[in-house]
Design a protein around this nucleic acid. Structure first.
Lengths: 331, 331
DNA sequence: CTGAAAGCGCTAACAT
DNA sequence: ATGTTAGCGCTTTCAG
């Protein structure tokens, strides 16, 4: 209220003529005080502008009221992660919980972050911070499996394999004979699943696999180079599936420069949908990862685990979909 | 180490045969203990796997070691904000500081977040949470001015007006006679500046202003509708500047459907650059907002203010640029 | 150079 | 139904 510094619980108690405990109980609905005193204390607290000190509460209760969210630095440009983040934040807000961003950009110098649990979006097995988090004592929920040898407390899974198969089937139905995959590296469950699914599918369907792998976070120019090289080396390719976010849009100019007509002599699809793909010419078919829902699901699972309502080792499925657009529909 | 629960400072002190104080000082380089004891204590702490309790430290020191970051919910899909976020997080990590995400999605029920200061990315004057934050006692740094009547402790400013003028000049040089602006609403300093600058420029250059305003967070279909209507009503328009992020790419199909050829009979530009604009056909000219740098600048200013190295009321300039692409270059 | 004690603001056990 | 007391783990006087 005035310049006396922050108003403490003691100040409220004193002003209300009750004890610390009673004030505390009144403000937290502990059901220990009479309705009359409760109202009185609340009124006084409001008048004084009381605001509880979260650090004190955390110290006392041994919980922080915040969860951590880790995203691999190399992937962070994408719209996918932005939505994922807000899925997590949104769900956390419902639980009255803060979300703290953790990155791998800087060495894990920091002792411990003040979090009760952590959500890992697409943990890279090569990421030291991810390892540290998984080895630490706080519960961790990952979006997709961790490909290394640590056990998160919870996992939210989407069936990327199934959707990619659907996509490949769709391309084949549309007449594609020579389908190539511009793949992401296998340091991620997602990247690994896509590669394996593609190779399996080719095998099962007696097709020659044409796979070009790229590291996560490769600049778009590298994606373009790969595709240029691919088309040069194997001009018979008549369908291209791009795994990395942003790749499909980025290679469009290259495909055109190579004289290809998207949707006609070359079908193009992406494994990550984004608004940009809706407005290219033609719009590009993509797997819809529903990132916001995935983020929310991760947060929900983490809270369930923290509350003891889900056992450690729980994994939950998160549906994804396929959005067909003109880039894979001839005519 | 074992299952004894977290290792406390007392445990370390005991194991090292020193007092709490000495252990604390040794681990924090307070320059009070001899080098020998310091090394010893550090060794013991490492062996035991000591990790300081941030809540306790916060409580004692009356600081949290975290800053808040608020983004308007309606804008959060964009690549701009993703980069902005990581600019802030990156800079904060350098200062050994966590970043907590704050949103307006849910009512400001939460008492107080555990933060020492807050960065507001493009504060909407209509946002209740923004108001609350600005009225609270924690220092606030905004990216762009707050258009309401509150005074943030610091402001990071970019000269959007100047760049838009450059862009308009560039369009005029390229022969555009009838330049329209697809504008964002004026609840934001940025949106307001763009509108005013455009209207001024038209006035000064004796041109008829053609401005269509849209609310923040409008879906792309609304943007498209606006442009369709604009072209119908004023077919003489030969250049279009799009303020909202994502609008330029989204209206491309509409422009084509209207029989326009971008870069020929219609010049197209965006006030917000993004990777998508580099790969459209043709690539689209845009103002480069350098979001990552802006985010870092906000965090830096906030830390300077918190450290008392910058006075309240400081504002700092953050350079932005113009990236000319084929959409505004005839031939 | 180091130790002992006080206390940050809060909640939980134990009294009334 | 309410008050008293004892810490949560840490940093900071104040004494040696």
């Amino acid at each position: 209220m005035s310049t006396e510094g922050p108003v403490t619980l003691i100040a409220v108690a004193k002003a209300a003529g009750v004890s610390k405990t009673t004030a505390s109980d009144a403000l937290r609905n502990s059901g220990r005080v009479s309705e009359r005193t409760r109202q009185h204390v609340i009124a006084v607290a409001n008048r004084l502008g009381y605001t509880p000190n979260p650090s004190a509460r955390s110290l006392r209760m041994a919980t922080t009221g915040a969860i951590g969210l880790h995203l691999p630095e190399v992937l962070t440009r994408s719209e996918y992660y932005m939505s994922f983040v807000f899925g997590v934040v949104d769900q956390a807000a419902r639980m009255n919980c803060d979300v703290t961003l953790l990155t791998s950009h800087h060495p894990p110098s920091r002792a411990t972050h003040r979090v009760d649990g952590v959500v890992l979006g697409d943990p890279l097995e090569t990421d030291a911070v991810v390892r540290g988090l998984l080895d630490s004592s706080v519960p961790v929920v990952t979006c997709e499996r961790f490909t290394g040898d640590a056990e998160p407390a919870g996992v939210v899974l989407s069936d990327h394999g199934a959707q990619l198969e659907r996509l490949l089937g769709h391309l084949a139905d549309a007449g594609a004979q020579h389908i190539a995959l511009l793949a992401s590296s296998t340091v991620t469950d997602w990247g690994r699943t896509l590669q394996r699914t593609y190779l399996d599918w080719c095998e099962r369907n007696g097709r020659h696999a044409r796979l070009r792998e790229m590291a996560f976070g490769s600049p778009t120019t590298v994606m373009q180079d790969h595709v240029r090289a691919l088309l040069n080396a194997e001009p018979e390719v008549d369908a291209l599936v791009c795994a990395p976010d942003g790749a499909a849009a980025a290679v469009l100019p290259v495909l055109r420069a190579a004289g290809r007509t998207i949707g006609e002599d070359l079908l193009l699809a992406s494994c990550v949908d984004s608004t940009a793909l809706r407005y290219t010419d033609p719009p590009i078919t993509a797997i819809d990862l529903r990132p916001r829902e995935a983020g929310a699901a991760c947060a929900r699972l983490l809270f369930d685990i923290l509350a003891g309502e889900a056992p450690r080792g729980t994994s939950r499925a998160q549906p994804i979909g396929l959005t067909v657009r003109r880039s894979t529909v001839r005519g």
